[in-house]
Amino acid sequence: MKVCISSTGKDLESEVDPQFGRCGYFVIVDLDTGSVTSLKNPGPEASGGSGIRAAEAIVNSKADILLTGSVGPNSFSILSEVGVEVRVGVKGTVADALKQYEAGDLCIIDSPNSSAHNGMKNS
């Protein structure tokens, strides 16, 4: 089972980034082996459709679960198409987000919880 967390950096000590499409990195933790890898988010480089690029990268990383803050409609349609579980409400570091997940504090969303282009406002 691979869990992917939207983050500002590459490791467990990095702060999470609640903006899915325009976060800097995805930290991918394999819960079975304990391995931690990271993936640079291709989203921020896109002038538009960053969520689409980011979601595509998640799908190709074979992650099963995404922990983040907000996901827009375009990204959500991709993640739900391939059955990536999306959980929101991350806070603190990547390690904190994993603890929140394990404690059952992050809720699954079954529809986008943000509008398209929302990440543009803060970038």
Binding site: A46, G48, G49, A55, E56, S77, I78, E81, V82
Partner: peptide, 23 residues
């Protein structure tokens, strides 16, 4: 197709290519 699109209107997924006409 998805690699080529500068506007990210296409997403190549393992099962199919999704099109986002608005982009």
């Amino acid at each position: 197709c998805a690699d080529f699109c500068r506007y990210n209107a296409l997403a190549a997924l393992p099962s199919r290519v999704l099109v986002f006409p608005a982009l």
